[in-house]
Design a protein around this nucleic acid. Structure first.
Length: 298
DNA sequence: GAAACGTGGAC
DNA sequence: TGTCCAAGTTT
């Protein structure tokens, strides 16, 4: 007899059960982790792998137990503690966020998605991740993993097309069960992170009772080539070099130290430095030296 | 919607 | 060795 695809409800129960048994024991998933610390983990995890986030997050939890304790620090201190997680503007925004929470939210992280969205560095993903993981709300949480799982299991495509927040949220919302919706959202992400991965999806271990992509014979991705972002020789690399000099230094440095960080193209070097000043990551001191913003404040 | 934005591990 | 990829947000 012909077997129908299982109902979404059935698939959801299977996935929730799988997650409870197989889900990774990540430090921010431990009981009694505060919403503030979950928010910190989510910001750090934006485009940065779990393995690199974990040790830094552990230090931050101990060092800054409340938004107000972080807000009391200079931006330079926070950016330096951010280390080499990448995209240091995130550290700056998180510091801003801490200040906002301390001053306007009584040191508490709001639970309402629309309020969360007003916080610096908090976008469509992070707002829902906090609502779901910190407050147990049954809401769709769409990251790159979820988009990939839905592309495969639901749409039968090897890879998702270009992101579309509204469409992606609708897709994910349609799958959420009435019971354990928060666990389900976490499970969907986890499946994409550990099993339904970008490179070598481990279909043999997939708990889903039905996958449209597998049913179609795992056809290769058909669609416009996705834009790959280079790095070597870009302004981003130069910014990274300059930030590394400033993070490593204990205080303001001479212009010559900045210049030594990128010798091949002085125009590009100047442009990168200017962009760091514009971003508010770097500042120039009265005597013409350069430093992480707020260096010497606290 | 496109482009910019770090860093390092894996293949 | 070079490309791909990682719990996205902002402009």
């Amino acid at each position: 007899m012909k077997s129908e695809p299982p109902t979404p409800r059935f698939a959801a129960e299977v996935l929730v059960t799988w997650f409870r048994k197989e889900g990774r024991e990540l430090p921010w998933r431990e009981p009694d982790v505060s919403p503030w610390h979950i928010l910190v983990s989510e910001i750090m995890l934006q485009q940065t792998p779990v393995s690199r986030v974990a040790p830094v997050w552990q230090q931050w939890v101990t060092r800054w137990p409340l938004p107000s304790t972080m807000a009391a620090e200079s931006p330079a201190t926070v950016v330096r503690a951010w280390g080499k997680l990448g995209y240091p503007r995130r550290a700056l925004r998180l510091h801003d966020c801490a200040r906002t929470l301390a001053e306007e939210f009584d040191d508490q992280v709001p639970s309402d998605i629309d309020v969360l969205l007003t916080l610096p560095g908090v976008g469509a993903y992070t707002a829902r991740a906090v609502a779901c993981f910190a407050y147990g709300q049954s809401v769709p949480v769409v990251d790159t993993n979820v988009r990939r799982v839905i592309a495969r299991a639901v749409h039968g495509q090897a890879e998702p097309g270009n992101p579309s927040t509204n469409r992606d949220l609708r897709d994910a919302a349609a799958l959420i069960p009435e019971i354990d919706g928060d666990i389900f959202s976490a499970a969907l992400m986890e499946l994409g992170a550990v099993t339904c991965t970008a490179r070598n999806p481990d279909c043999a271990r997939c708990p889903l009772p039905h996958c449209a992509w597998v049913a179609a014979g795992r056809p290769p991705y058909e669609g416009p080539p996705r834009k790959t972002q280079g790095f070597a020789g870009t302004d981003r690399q130069v910014r990274g070099r300059i930030m590394d000099v400033l993070r490593t230094a204990s205080g303001p440095v001479d212009r010559s130290r900045i210049d030594a960080a990128w010798l091949t193209d002085t125009t590009q070097r100047d442009r990168a430095l200017l962009s760091l000043l514009t971003d508010g990551l770097v500042e120039q001191t009265m005597d013409g030296q350069f430093a992480l913003v707020g260096e010497g404040e606290s």
